[in-house]
Write a protein that binds this DNA or RNA. Sequence first.
DNA 1: ACCTGAACACCGTTCAAGT
DNA 2: ACCTGAACACCGTTCAAGT
Lengths: 249, 249
Amino acid sequence: MTKPFSSVWLRPPRQPKTSGLSREQIVAAAIELLDTEGLGALSMRKLGAKLGAGATSLYWYVTNKDELLELVLDEMWGEVDLPDPPTTPWREAAGVLAYNLRTTMRAHPWMVELTGRMVSLGPNVLRLNERMRRTFHAAGFSGMDVYFASGTVISYVLGQVVPETTFQRRSDRQPADFDTEGVMRALRDLAGGYPELASDLEQYADTDQEANRAMAFDFGLVCVLDGLAARLSSTDPARPRTPPLPDPR
Amino acid sequence: MTKPFSSVWLRPPRQPKTSGLSREQIVAAAIELLDTEGLGALSMRKLGAKLGAGATSLYWYVTNKDELLELVLDEMWGEVDLPDPPTTPWREAAGVLAYNLRTTMRAHPWMVELTGRMVSLGPNVLRLNERMRRTFHAAGFSGMDVYFASGTVISYVLGQVVPETTFQRRSDRQPADFDTEGVMRALRDLAGGYPELASDLEQYADTDQEANRAMAFDFGLVCVLDGLAARLSSTDPARPRTPPLPDPR
DNA sequence: ACCTGAACACCGTTCAAGT
DNA sequence: ACCTGAACACCGTTCAAGT
């Protein structure tokens, strides 16, 4: 009785445009709207109006809002690029990818929300994944490890950027007069019973918030890459190198 | 002209309940609704009805829906627990936390979406953070590295769980008759031009999807922990151990 | 102090009807 | 083939009014 899984990418696209609107136009307009007003403010009506069309015209190009968002999300993945595998050493390639992904997500904070909502099966995600796999394959990973390694890097970046962008989003437009001071003051109050937390707050009260985030990102990225490198250097198939993990739960 | 930052946690709570509803009740009911119907299906009206109250009664306990969601989210963080710092070695503690967080998020897939939407300043997040910091402090990290190390672990888990749960959510209720077969077939079509991807698909066609995800999670977790361990063992303050990262952008 | 109902300004989506 | 408008069943939130 469940509605079956569906996705734009599993449906043959419309014939080449003969007139009027096009998917590309719609997606472009949607991205513009999302960038300026955020995910919560995107409605089919507004988008239609922006395109000088009736509110419901879009439904001819796209079966519903979710599928429009799938298209838009894949478009974002298209912005992330990865150095060509053979020419670049894996560690550098992975590092560049990580930074590129972070840059793109911060430029379009709504992308993070979307990633938590839609499955990504678009051509741009697939292309990027393919490249990453080739990179890690060339690095010396084999079998499923190729897939696991790519996943590890992407996961880390995504997870790190999530909190960065939620803050961005709360400050809405005009970051200029956003009351970071007030938040910090309030946070300091809340940190009452937590000595470690409080000492952290003191420490990064001095440093620039933005520089701070950059350091945090870099710290973790280095860990992830070091971990991958370690895995790679233990070339023997049986690797008792790392202590076993505790049983989940 | 921006609306200033606001959060439930920055506002003094209502007096102790004298009668009628309570925040705890409301939050509990909301969680129930979210677990059974998902984030998209939670409306103030439905929630009110579930509590046998008028649709708008809730607004006396909570300023708006967003703040209700903040409360609910923090409640989830309360479910994640972390072994007590002094007794457990850091690596094990971090591993357990990672698995616990994954378990909680998979049990409440809407938590992932919320994490991308609200800032987390609730007491449960703060308490957990405090514990993590003590753990990493005891492990030998110092200064901001304590904070960075916790962030790295949490980011990794969050990022890894995001795609896991989007799939869960798409299959909606009744995972029983969800057409995984169909998705796999469709995916195989899409993988046309991507040899690495295609070979991956073949490989994990044999293994159980769920076991697969578990392996992927474990792989990355080991990397992250190895990376942290490496950082820890290079005790000298100047550490030219890792090659510098490429300049962002 | 707590709850209600009506009302406002929105939504996504369907569908018959137009060109 | 493409677009429209009206209509349906929803939203979050405000606010005067009740007890």
